[in-house]
Design a protein around this nucleic acid. Structure first.
Lengths: 233, 233
DNA sequence: TGTGACATAAACGTCGTACTTATTATTCCC
DNA sequence: GGGAATAATAAGTACGACGTTTATGTCACA
């Protein structure tokens, strides 16, 4: 998963970002640019650019004469998809997965309601198609195929809401779904009830029924949260 | 508002970020590092660091032999508080303010419900205090004082929810409230109904009544959306 | 005329070094 | 012991050189 070999910058950034967000280099610890340059065997230029990016994510703070200090977790830009990926790959994935799922449970019902009002015919069609795809891949250990349809489905709903902030959460949802599929936080086959709910949600959106869309999406969210409670205590 | 004089980097970043997110430098337009270095009268080193940061926000993309191209709006990290500030300061503030307010209307009711379950005694006390502060500053053109209490109030609710993703939205809400206060998107005095609702919300949280907290917060959100419709068509 | 290989140049990517500046730590004097 | 001068340190900035990728133009050949 770790991007690599498409530039020194990318490699160093990914390594350092992961180390910081996974808990090694705990908040308060200090990094020195010279040491990092030596460690990664790159010039200080590259290190400085990486530091600047980490700084823009509020993961670190650079001060003269003292070095680059790791900032406390509360200041991190936890909505940055890059940061989310690092955190899901690192230590406390369970806690992270739960926070994000609660976030989804707040956003997606509202987004679905808006989608029922605003979705284009094309979006409705694609939504139905994806729902059918989920049905088709819901049995027989086709988790990868299911994941693809599931991700696309939720992305369409968020986009169809017409709200930019919701739409941009598609990446976050994608990370969550991928994270839970790839880390044993899921049964062998998806919950049949969830599959059915997705089909019904596609219908509700197509028929322009906001209340139903919102209610069904809430049920999906509750199911997801419950699944987390069972599988990742 | 524009941060300055605490490093060349900061100044250049702020200027460029604002120019891009406000629509000059439309998506697809190309910047050259050498030209930028000349224009800002700084070394290419500084420019490169700035570009790297803008790249991490997905505002631009740097490719060899072609230059730094501005990416389409759909890819921007619109949850980055820095980007939000730039966009609220620039051109389509109204559209932006609406997206963000809809986002709030999805998040805050759920957060308030959780806060009613999880808030500590201390948080309840501070919440009440802030609500009273809002009452006290709700008349007689004390908009700045009101803004301060209002911001603190919503921040406490988000923090008290116990969910990290909600808590980190405090900065976003702060930007929205500041933006609407400082840009004529508000009456001379705040809506009395809104003030009352905040007091009632503090009560609901203190009494541990999630349903009431959620319902009241929804009313606050509806009011905010309505206010936008009236003042910023 | 069209197509492919090849050369070219334009831009970013990386490096090393030298110098500047802010901040901390130390020393020294009162 | 306290406060001011001083030194040491690590980041900030600048500059110049070279490497690398890749869009684009050119030429030969069919």
């Amino acid at each position: 998963m770790t991007t690599q070999s498409q530039g020194l910058h990318t490699h160093v950034l990914d390594t350092l970002g992961l180390e910081i967000s996974s808990g090694q280099c705990p908040p308060g610890s200090v990094l020195r640019t010279d040491e990092l340059a030596q460690r990664f065997d790159v010039s200080r230029t590259v290190i400085r650019e990486v530091i600047r990016v980490l700084e823009s994510m509020h993961l670190v703070e650079s001060r003269r004469r003292v070095g680059v200090t790791v900032r406390p977790t509360e200041t991190w830009n936890v909505y940055d998809p890059q940061v989310i990926r690092w955190r899901l790959a690192g230590a406390d994935r369970p806690r992270q997965l739960r926070s994000l799922t609660v976030l989804r449970s707040a956003i997606e019902p509202v987004a679905a309601g808006l989608a029922a009002r605003n979705a284009t015919a094309e979006q409705c069609a694609e939504l139905t198609e994806r729902a059918l795809g989920m049905v088709a891949t819901s049995r027989g250990q086709q988790l990868e195929g299911y994941l693809e349809h599931d991700t696309a489905f939720h992305r369409i709903v968020l986009n169809a809401s017409g709200n930019e902030m919701f739409a941009r959460l598609g990446d976050v949802v994608a990370e969550v779904l991928a994270g839970r599929t790839h880390h044993q936080v899921m049964f062998e086959d998806p919950d049949p009830a969830a599959v059915t709910l997705h089909v019904r949600l596609a219908e509700a959106v197509r028929e322009g029924d906001p209340e139903a869309a919102e209610r069904i999406t809430k049920e999906i969210a509750v199911g997801a949260l419950h699944e987390l409670d069972v599988l990742a205590p």
